[in-house]
Design a protein around this nucleic acid. Structure first.
Lengths: 197, 197
DNA sequence: GGGAAAACTGACCGACCGGTAAGTAAGTAT
DNA sequence: ATACTTACTTACCGGTCGGTCAGTTTTCCC
């Protein structure tokens, strides 16, 4: 059991995550979060220094778990292509409200102070983008992928998934299997080194 | 010459476009636009009913020109693949501030009133998404593309371009040719019906 | 040059925002 | 019992937002 986690604090985080995703950073008022929990607004400020800190407290843990997930996947036996396949499946089978955090991060970064932006950007690069780039690099080095720039490969993969980071796009329901299969196929066929030539 | 276009109105639109893209809908205050032009805030309200109307007046004309562009491209001789290639090149060689409008639309739609959202959504579907879906459908029908759902193909294409709709991603400079070439290749190889089997 | 319409300005408003200060009830250690 | 800490609440503040309105300047027509 996680002992030192006050009950209210985690409730705030849960509601804030849902509401930040639904509304965006500026459009969500602290008052809304407080009212949804039936507590005073000042209670939020007891647990979080300000709005930015709460926002980051929603985003950063997701990046942490993403890092361990990516590490586990790349440690698996199998080709880089299979790693990608596992990664895409993992992300897109998450609840829409989970995977939408990725979009939230990239989308609302500009609204934050320079300090927060820098802090988040560092973690984002190290724990997420960097790991994906390394995966892309590996695919290229092994001759599995065509020799594109790993950065381009990374953003191609994220871009392909991006539309499904909007909960509205699927009506908040789980993604059909056919979608996951299609975009994985498109990506892998798109970068795969052809066997015959 | 476009006669009935008041000078200030088009200046407002130009500045608003730049600033909406840089800041997002909520973060941009009407006052900022007025000050950038050296006019009073009320002058903006002389030309536009409210903030939403100004926002839509930035977005909608882009969709109009996008529609004619798409119609011109699909009327060209050549394969569907070549049409896609032309489309991607066209969009990604636009100035970053132009193509970022696509992101602005999909990103900030949720901030608008239900009425504006519906109005924009209709045009967005008809003049942009619908045309792309038709293009995808054609590729499938002609046997050029693998038989994916045209909707999935469309969002795959847009997703691949999406990272480059963030001006920050390229530092506001023109996209390197290699990027355009790479993502086009990835997309076309990804959906292309293989010749040999 | 007079008069109406068009194109603004300046001052202001109520709503709402993030954030804070002061107070308090319920534990907890001594 | 007392002193202190934790976890809040109530009340409020300065600032900013979108938007309005009465009045003033500019433009244009006759």
């Amino acid at each position: 059991m996680t002992q030192p986690e006050p009950a209210l604090r985690s409730q705030i985080l849960a509601i804030a995550q849902r509401k930040f995703i639904a509304s965006g950073y500026h459009a969500l008022a602290m008052r809304e979060i407080a009212e949804a929990l039936g507590v005073s607004k000042a209670a939020l400020y007891y647990h979080f220094k300000d709005k930015e800190e709460l926002f980051l407290a929603v985003l950063l843990p997701y990046l942490e778990t993403m890092e361990t997930t990516l590490d586990q996947i790349t440690a698996l036996p199998g080709s880089t292509g299979e790693h990608i396949r596992t990664f895409v499946r993992h992300v897109l089978t998450q609840p829409a409200e989970e995977r939408a955090i990725i979009r939230l991060g990239s989308q609302e970064l500009g609204q934050l102070s320079a300090a927060s932006r820098k802090a988040f950007g560092k973690v984002y690069q190290e724990k997420f983008i960097g790991k994906l780039k390394a995966l892309a690099q590996r695919g290229v080095d092994r001759g599995e992928f065509q020799p594109h720039d790993p950065e381009i490969i990374t953003w191609a993969l994220l871009g392909l998934m991006y539309p499904y980071f909007y909960p509205a796009h699927t009506g908040n329901r789980p993604l059909p299997e056919a979608v996951i299969e299609s975009i994985t196929t498109i990506f892998l066929d798109g970068i795969r080194q052809p066997k015959k030539r």
